[in-house]
């Protein structure tokens, strides 16, 4: 019995020596790797607890509420309103955290990556860096994170993230709730596993933006895929039938012809074509 015990201890020690760094890593960081999806029944709305559209009750300033209402009218008429995704502009932050298609989280000591199969990756730098003096604005923004051991058990359990440095146009969801044109959005997140279910990931997202009268906090919930994980590449431009000519949106029909998206929409101006000037 003593011999078996020693063997087990030696084997265990060997395991530790061979992969000490990797095991130390696993002991230090939460197991949030893998594929995460929206829970069943959750659509593309920003606040998962409310239906998409006006019932989101976004805390918009009067100016941006008016823009939102005009956008809704345009969408009802067949337009895209202020939603830029019809042009295959990426959703950017914070909208990409609605996770239309599944996301993967890869944790490395200096960076946590959030990878999706339909938009650019997020790099959350956790190497202790300060904000750079100049940030080239992007749709995804520049993210700095900090791992926290909230319960003091020696293992990190919360990733706090702050994201700045944005460009537009960006909206919270497909109904066209806009973020401010100034790109000065600040997004604060707390990403953690559910304490009672390690297959549920929570992201508390607070958006501070000049289009809002106050910070807008929502908590997103994601479900870990435990079955056969499959990744599909979803590229917007591949089958996009929307066409923008100047500021006007048209569609290309299945038979390859340009067509209006709204009733009585005027066709594009063809003055640069010689044959149209006859």
């Amino acid at each position: 019995m003593a011999c078996r015990s020693s063997f087990a201890i030696v084997a265990l020690a060997g395991l530790f020596v061979a992969d000490a760094a990797a095991q130390d890593f696993l002991l230090k960081y939460p197991d949030i790797v893998g594929q995460w999806r929206r829970p069943a029944g959750i659509g593309i709305q920003w606040d998962q607890s409310k239906p998409v559209g006006p019932r989101q009750q976004a805390p918009l300033t009067p100016e941006y509420q008016a823009r939102y209402d005009a956008n809704l009218a345009d969408q009802r008429a067949g337009g895209q309103g202020t939603d830029p995704l019809g042009k295959c502009i990426p959703p950017g932050m914070p909208r990409m955290m609605s996770v239309i298609f599944p996301m993967e989280i890869v944790v490395m000591p200096n960076t946590t990556y959030i990878l999706t199969d339909y938009t650019d990756p997020r790099r959350i730098f956790t190497d202790g860096r300060a904000w750079p003096k100049e940030v080239e604005p992007t749709f995804t923004g520049y993210s700095i994170g900090k791992w926290i051991d909230e319960d003091g058990d020696g293992r990190y359990d919360v990733l706090e993230v702050e994201t700045r440095g944005f460009k537009g146009p960006r909206t919270f969801e497909a109904s066209g709730i806009e973020l401010h044109d100034d790109g000065e959005t600040v997004i604060k997140e707390r990403i953690s596993l559910d304490k009672t279910n390690k297959d549920i990931l929570l992201d508390e997202i607070t958006t501070i933006d000049n289009a809002l009268t106050r910070p807008w906090t929502v908590t997103k919930k994601y479900q870990r895929e435990r079955g056969n994980v499959v990744w599909h590449f979803n590229h917007c431009a591949e089958n996009n039938h929307h066409v923008w000519i100047g500021r006007d949106n048209y569609m290309v029909s299945g038979d390859g012809y340009l067509m209006p998206v709204k009733k009585n929409q005027a066709p594009p101006d063809l003055r640069y074509f010689q044959s149209s000037q006859k």
Binding site: Y257, L258, Q265, P268, L270, Y272, S276
Partner: peptide, 27 residues
């Protein structure tokens, strides 16, 4: 699409798109 937002040909002598789906076709 030109800088002025108007559609333009990519090749010399290219014909404009077919606008049959528009009620009042300009082209």
């Amino acid at each position: 699409v030109g800088a002025d937002g108007l559609l333009m040909p990519a090749k010399k002598g290219q014909l404009p798109p077919d606008l049959r789906h528009f009620t009042e076709s300009k082209g």
